[in-house]
């Protein structure tokens, strides 16, 4: 075999190897990696990739991964919110009532974006007004920031005179039992839209 042929084969082999190495890196550690893709996308992370702990309305510390095993609905809000939060929690209550017995095995998390005022006790008193499946969660400012980062939720404090209110992402996140993100139920979505989305998560 002439030298130029050997050289050509060598070059081809080197190119093939480096291409597959680059491809492998891209998919595993690079921009194509599923974890990185999930972290950089605007979509909420799978529950299994979330790393935070919160305090529930009974005062227990819970990990995000404790939610695995059952479908999950998550809503961020605060109890000093007079309009959208009680409306959403009333909507969730209505959805759960439409689903009936299917909701015996579903976690519903109402996470405060205002941990300063929303203690575990405050959350407990507040959620009593809604469906019993709804649990309240609070924590340190850092806990809330970590949880919000996992769900890609935005929130900010707005000072109004002597008090303050909170702007916050208002959709309801729907997850299946394996912690995979199924969809978001936007505010103003009808019960006819919302219930099938939850059913999808229940049936997966």
């Amino acid at each position: 075999m002439p030298t130029w042929k050997l050289l050509l084969i060598g070059c081809g082999l080197a190119l093939a190897i480096s291409t597959s190495l680059l491809f492998g890196w891209w998919q595993v550690d690079g921009p194509g990696a599923p974890e990185r893709k999930a972290r950089e996308s605007k979509l909420p992370l799978p529950i299994g990739q979330m790393d935070f702990a919160l305090t529930d309305h009974k005062g227990n510390r819970v990990q995000a991964t404790d939610w695995l095993g059952e479908p999950l609905l998550v809503f961020f809000g605060f109890t000093y919110c007079p309009d959208i939060c009680p409306t959403t929690l009333a909507d969730i209550t209505g959805w759960l009532e439409s689903l009936g017995d299917d909701t015996k095995h579903i976690n519903v998390a109402f996470i405060t974006v205002d941990p300063e005022r929303d203690t575990a006790e405050a959350m407990a008193v507040y959620i009593e007004n809604f469906h019993p499946a709804i649990a309240g969660y609070t924590g340190s400012s850092q806990d809330i920031a970590d949880a919000a980062a996992g769900f890609k939720v935005k929130y900010e404090r707005i000072v109004t005179g002597q008090t303050y209110t909170m702007n916050h992402t208002a959709g309801v996140f729907v997850y299946d039992a394996e912690g995979r993100f199924v969809s978001i139920i936007d505010f103003h979505e009808s019960r006819e839209n919302a219930v099938p989305k939850i059913r999808r998560a229940l049936e997966r």
Binding site: C81, D83, I84, I158, N167, H168, A170, F187
Partner: peptide, 14 residues
């Protein structure tokens, strides 16, 4: 009277 407005899924009130 306050208004609730929604931008990029974020609820604002004022």
């Amino acid at each position: 009277v306050h208004a609730m407005t929604m931008t990029d899924g974020v609820a604002r009130m004022g």
